[in-house]
Nucleic acid binder design. Structure first.
Lengths: 245, 245
DNA sequence: CGAGCAATTGAGCATGGTCAACCAGAGTGG
DNA sequence: CCACTCTGGTTGACCATGCTCAATTGCTCG
């Protein structure tokens, strides 16, 4: 898959729901490692492929949490709203991430497509049945959720204690790490989300994000070819300031 | 158990490790619901009771995560440090909460006793073996971790988007909700942690916490009999401002 | 009664927010 | 084809929330 290609052309090869779900991460994530074909087939019967364009909601906070999603491609943002409109973006998900994992009966955040997005939608009951039948599936989920819980500690530190400069630098490092994880180049970042989303993720305003990016640019650590791409020219510098150096 | 009694007298009845672990939450949390006595016995062989006085560390960030703890009584704080000493307290745990749950090999936070604390210390390997043998244990853990992950979303909103006043009000409401959960009165709060810990939990300074508390006191919503107790006189007011009303 | 520590209060300041103007690129219609 | 508009981003001036530094209070424990 070519990097930075979130356009509509991406979907030419996606055809029927059944086909898509076979290629989704049920298998590739080793989620179903050791599950016999029979179990997979039953899960697939309770699974649909969902394709959304940018801006469309996946789930809404407070809705009954009847489905669990796996992002197959594209970027999804999660957020919570306050009554007066203040917003906290609590995460950006890319391919391989699950959303809607919950023990409670309602979703705790709204999820919305940032780019065109492809998702696998599992019926929660079916997934739970699969977990009951094949313990290795639940084991995998526990690992996933624990990893997420560990990652969240860093985000709390960022939100509670870092300066605007440190926040933005940390964000860029995170994007870079994720790009590497996906086999993309470390220094040329796709930034599909807008400045508003970035601000609401970092607990900053749009203006501060913009100012801070130009500050980092002027320091020579990044260049900004266009609004949705950032090139990292001095990663060490970003790493240093991201941890308060 | 009487509320607000975190003093040394609390421990007169705690004697040997074996006895304590029998009474710890392995059973009462229905963690081991359906596990035969044999399994329980094996887990207990890999379990110790730990008693700590205020200020002592439970685990340190970065240490190999060989143990998982269950808080039996007292309050534990979790925190992360930055190189220059800035600190984010990421949580306060009370009885029933687990700490050290991790899929990674190292603890992601430092845990420290806020009051005198009693813990059950499980060997992680033993607990994992138990989970492998009795799937209901893993199921319970998955539920616990998912609930925690849901709760964390609110904390991110608090840290990223709430004002000092809203943060402190939210904190008081949280303490109140926890008190109720433990069967304590809703309006008389035990506040075992100091202002510094509260500040580092809310992403504020000690001075702002203090000022904000007196502000709320002057508004007539709370009274502060002493530094470690707060009486809520107008819960509705606190709830209103905690969500930005 | 005095030492030590945590919390409170005050005065001034800085980081980041607010409000407003400006700019650049994409899409639309005359 | 070019002006017009719409949207998202940047920049600037000013302001406010919460931080820093410092003095003071109050409690606990010798």
């Amino acid at each position: 898959m070519a990097p930075f290609d979130y356009g509509p052309g991406r979907w030419k090869n996606a055809s029927t729901a059944a086909q898509t779900c076979l290629s989704c991460d049920v298998r590739s994530l080793t989620l179903c490692h050791g599950v016999p074909d029979d179990g997979i087939r039953r899960l697939q019967a309770a699974t649909q492929a969902v394709s959304l364009i940018a801006g469309q909601p996946v789930v809404r906070e407070g809705e009954p949490a009847d489905h669990i999603f796996n992002v197959t491609s594209g970027t999804v943002k999660l957020y919570k709203l306050m009554a007066d409109g203040r917003r906290q973006v609590t995460g950006f998900l890319q391919d391989g991430s699950f959303l809607g994992l919950s023990h409670a009966n309602a979703y705790v955040y709204t999820a919305e497509a940032v780019t065109q997005v492809m998702l696998c939608r599992f019926q929660r009951k079916a997934l739970e049945a699969l977990m009951d039948e094949f313990p290795t599936v639940r084991k995998k989920f526990l690992e996933i959720v624990m990893d997420e819980l560990a990652a969240v500690e860093d985000q709390k530190l960022l939100l509670g204690r870092k300066t605007a400069l440190e926040k933005v630098a940390s964000f860029l490092i995170m994007l870079s790490d994720r790009a590497v994880l996906r086999g993309h180049p470390q220094h040329l970042l796709s930034v599909p989300m807008g400045r508003l989303d970035i601000g609401d993720y970092l607990g900053l305003t749009i203006e501060t994000v913009s100012r801070t990016l130009t500050q980092i640019k002027r320091a020579g650590a990044i260049s900004i070819p266009d609004n949705s791409h950032i090139r990292i020219d001095d990663r060490a510098y970003l790493e240093r300031i991201s941890e308060g150096g």
